Simulated scan of single mutants.
Amino acid sequence: MYITCLLLAVLLGASSNSQAQLKRFSIGPYVEAGFPVGDLSDTHNTGIGAGLNADIKLIAGFGVTGSVGYMRFPGKKGVSISDGQGNTISTDYSALQAIPVRVGVKYKFPFPLLYVKVEGGVANRVGKDNNGAPVIFAPGIGIRFLGLDVEAKYEGWYKDGTAGFFGLKAGYNF
């Protein structure tokens, strides 16, 4: 959590210096939907999230990015599983909730609008299912037009296996 506060303080501090330099810094809210794949799709439904994203433009199309948000995947009810002795039982899964903190690099192609991005970080779990923070790896591709930012990505949370999802993220950067 201290890292998150430090990251936001640095980004906000850079904002005041960068506004006079052709808007090299931007910050804004986002919403996202996560469509589970693999084992996560067996136990959880489509997730939704929201948060705050920041970008700092560097040179030659490169930049750094960071975000902090909240993501929730509702648990499935009445899922049939084997008890290991040939019997089938029904179980309910609780919601998977996390505060993902991501930082990464971004490359904007010379032709307008299109970029690729790779982020990493941690997904700080929330609630009674708080058994540690999985590591995040999230490559994506997106378009940005007049502050509107839309990205398609795959995000994997790695800890004792993988909880992965395809995501669609939309935000506005000021």
Score class of each variant (00 low, 15 high):
T65M: 10
S67Y: 00
K76S: 00
K108R: 14
V37L: 14
L114N: 07
V103I: 14
G104R: 13
P74N: 09
D42P: 04
V105A: 15
G84S: 00
I59R: 12
I59G: 11
V68E: 04
E32T: 13
R102W: 01
G28C: 07
S90A: 12
P100D: 02
M71D: 01
T43Y: 01
K76L: 13
G61C: 10
R24V: 08
L40R: 06
P100Q: 04
S67I: 06
G38V: 06
S41G: 07
G66D: 04
G47N: 11
D39W: 05
G75C: 10
T65F: 02
V68D: 03
S90P: 00
V68N: 04
I48N: 09
T65P: 02
L52P: 05
P74G: 06
F111P: 01
K77I: 14
D55T: 15
K106C: 08
R102I: 03
V68P: 01
V68H: 04
V31E: 01
F111K: 02
G38M: 06
K106R: 15
V105W: 06
D83V: 04
P74W: 09
S26I: 06
G75M: 07
K108Q: 15
G66F: 04
Y115G: 11
V64S: 05
Y115F: 15
V31F: 05
Y115N: 11
V64P: 05
G28D: 04
N45M: 12
V31I: 15
F111M: 14
F73K: 03
G49N: 00
D42M: 11
G51H: 00
L114A: 13
F62P: 09
A33R: 02
A50E: 04
T43P: 00
Y30T: 01
V103A: 15
G66K: 02
L96M: 11
G34Q: 09
K108N: 14
R24M: 12
A54Q: 00
Y107H: 08
D83Y: 03
K77P: 08
T88M: 08
S90G: 12
G66S: 10
N45F: 06
D55R: 13
D55K: 14
K57Y: 05
R102F: 04
M71H: 00
P74R: 11
I56K: 06
K76A: 11
N53W: 11
I48F: 10
F109I: 08
A50L: 13
G69P: 08
D39N: 14
K106H: 05
T46P: 04
D55F: 12
V101S: 10
I56S: 10
V37S: 00
G69S: 08
Y93A: 02
D55E: 15
A60H: 09
I27G: 11
L113C: 06
N53I: 12
I99K: 05
G69H: 03
Y70H: 02
G69V: 07
S26C: 10
I99W: 05
P36N: 07
G86L: 10
V79Q: 06
I99P: 07
P112W: 03
I99D: 05
R102P: 06
F109C: 00
N45T: 12
I27H: 03
K106E: 08
L52T: 01
R102V: 10
A98I: 06
S80P: 11
G47W: 02
F25S: 13
G84M: 05
V64T: 12
A60L: 12
V37I: 14
P100A: 05
V64Q: 06
T43M: 13
V68W: 04
F109M: 08
G84Y: 00
F62A: 14
A98Q: 04
A54R: 01
V31N: 08
S90D: 03
T91A: 15
